[in-house]
Nucleic acid binder design. Structure first.
Lengths: 343, 343
DNA sequence: TTGTAAGCGTTATCAG
DNA sequence: CTGATAACGCTTACAA
């Protein structure tokens, strides 16, 4: 291994000068600076990250905590975090909690020790559990897709997304739209519900809370049908895809009989048939922004709300004259609470 | 910050003893071991990763390099890597090369300095570029989804997967099956082609090479139709999904008119309609295995080939009596080489 | 079994 | 502008 000491020797300068030259600090003669650069180059010198971290206290690393890397939502955020970190010369340490909120404290503490800042993507964590976590990180934290007064965050203009979706649906003649909600502890589900209440009041049909997955969607679809809905707005695209699949399976046509709108605009949304109308949120950009927020701590914390945009595709159409009457044999009864406990 | 020195002081022992006790090394009296543990606990001591790395030379970190975190294939591998690393007390540093093979040397060099070992997932890198990269890593490397004599690897029993798919299709009466291939530089495409040649010889219709994406699939679908194929085996699920979508768009029924088989069994495969018949490969397990391979260097390098399994769903059915005759208006001409250059 | 002390590779302080 | 030298927190001979 070639150390800075070697570089200094070859360049004919002291260790200190070599160090200054490498980190292009002031107080180095042009000549020496040149010598050192040359020596470093020829020796193939690469600074030792751990040694640097030990003295400077900064690791050149940002941490990212997500519930599930295989979920396209988080994968997209991860891409953004990764890209921005790389651009700014940092690396990213990822932790996938496998949707297990209980392990987050450990994961965050552990990661927190090894990074300069932490991007935390924990949509399902109850609000009151957030404070201790921020403390456990022991360093700057930026939240993605949720807000709290105690830390900077980047989220999306959900209210506007809901408005756009609702306007679209109403313009198509859907007077009452059903909402297939997400987990109760989800901050962003709360946002959607609040917006829905403010914008649609009693003309929104609450189907309940579902797991934010394809399976949650099939569950919701049956409920929507039973309720005679002509349009269903979904918590996210995964749910919407499930709704689409279930509708198809039960022989109801989309968008002819019922329109479906998703949220997020995950890659699969545009690949499915019919292509999903959905509220596109800038996931990767959120990841990038979160990384930037890590640097600039401010009081009060900076809260960025990224704009969203409805992407109209093929899963929405004018409301049918009369709602479909699904085949009753496949109708599933409405359970008291369709929410499945999130681990 | 609480250091080991603090712990030692509180425990009433020397720094060395505290160190030994913490890393439960031998030569520590039970009493002292206890004292130290107690002190560490009460002080909330956590070892400083950089300091430890500096002295021991090991970082407790494994690196993962993938072309695209948002690609479900790599996301699944990443999950496996992450899970296994965590189980063994290590963290994961990820790098997403954004499908740009040119940046890999830099990324690998940079990451290589910060990790104890590198899991490299670089399916499209030309074989002759691999050697230098392994050197650049400057430490143990495990390859995923490709083999080379110079490094341990974990790949899949592709030949057997092809055999299973072919057997399935033949049993359904498809005598000649079309193959929608992947990038020419892809090791795993080579494997598929070799297996296809050995198993099906001249009864396989080579449609060419396509980008391993949905778009590549729509391209392939047109070619398959023009060739009058009744079954198409695809390089991967993304391509298969594209084929399915394009077939649907052109009004040909799947599986009634043409059967489609994918490869990988990515999550979306089971969610689409019709659900995709595909060769399931244990992606996450591959990631885990790769991490394990990092530890145990052996000469010659260990090459693990994981078993695969055809998952029969709804995109395959008995061959129709006569191949479909697609509407000629939408038929695209066969280009000289449909392969799109991979960046 | 325990403690002292010598590093690990860098950065930073402080005299020259 | 430059060079010794003291940290940074931890591990590990080497002594005791």
């Amino acid at each position: 291994m070639v150390t800075l000491r070697d570089v200094a020797r070859v360049a004919g300068v002291s260790l200190a000068t070599a160090s200054r030259a490498m980190s292009d600090a002031p107080h180095v003669s042009a000549a020496n600076r040149e010598q050192v650069a040359r020596a470093a180059e020829s020796l193939g010198y690469r600074p030792h990250p751990a040694a640097r971290a030990l003295t400077t206290g900064s690791t050149g690393t940002v941490g990212l905590v997500v519930p599930d890397l295989a979920n396209p939502f988080f994968a997209a955020v991860a891409k953004g975090v990764q890209a921005r970190a790389r651009e700014t010369g940092r690396d990213v340490l990822v932790a996938d909690t496998d949707e297990d909120v209980a392990v987050e404290p450990d994961v965050i503490t552990r990661l927190g020790d090894r990074v300069d800042g932490l991007v935390l993507c924990s949509p399902r964590l109850p609000a009151d559990a957030l404070g201790p976590l921020l403390a456990a990180a022991g360093g700057p934290v930026a939240l993605v897709n949720r807000e709290t007064p105690d830390a900077p965050s980047v989220s999306f203009d959900i209210a506007d997304g809901v408005r756009q979706a609702l306007d679209h649906l109403r313009a198509l003649g859907h007077d009452v739209v059903a909402y297939a909600g997400g987990p109760r502890t989800s901050w962003s589900d709360g946002e959607r519900r609040t917006a829905l209440g403010a914008l649609a009041g009693d003309t929104v049909l609450d189907l309940g809370s579902f797991r934010p997955t394809h399976g949650g969607g099939v569950q919701a679809a049956d409920l929507a049908l039973a309720a005679g809905a002509t349009a269903v707005l979904c918590f996210n695209d995964l749910v919407a895809l499930g709704v689409l699949a279930r509708l198809h399976a039960r022989g109801v046509a989309t968008p002819a009989d019922v329109s479906v709108v998703g949220f997020d605009d995950v890659a699969a949304a545009s690949l499915v048939t019919p292509a999903l109308t959905t509220v596109a949120v800038p996931l990767a950009r959120a990841g990038r922004t979160a990384v930037d927020l890590l640097g600039a701590a401010s009081a009060p914390p900076d809260h960025r709300r990224l704009p969203v945009e409805l992407v109209v595709r093929s899963s929405t159409a004018p409301a049918p004259p009369t709602p479909v009457q699904p085949d009753p044999r496949t109708t599933v009864p409405r359970t008291a609470d369709p929410e499945v406990v999130i681990r």
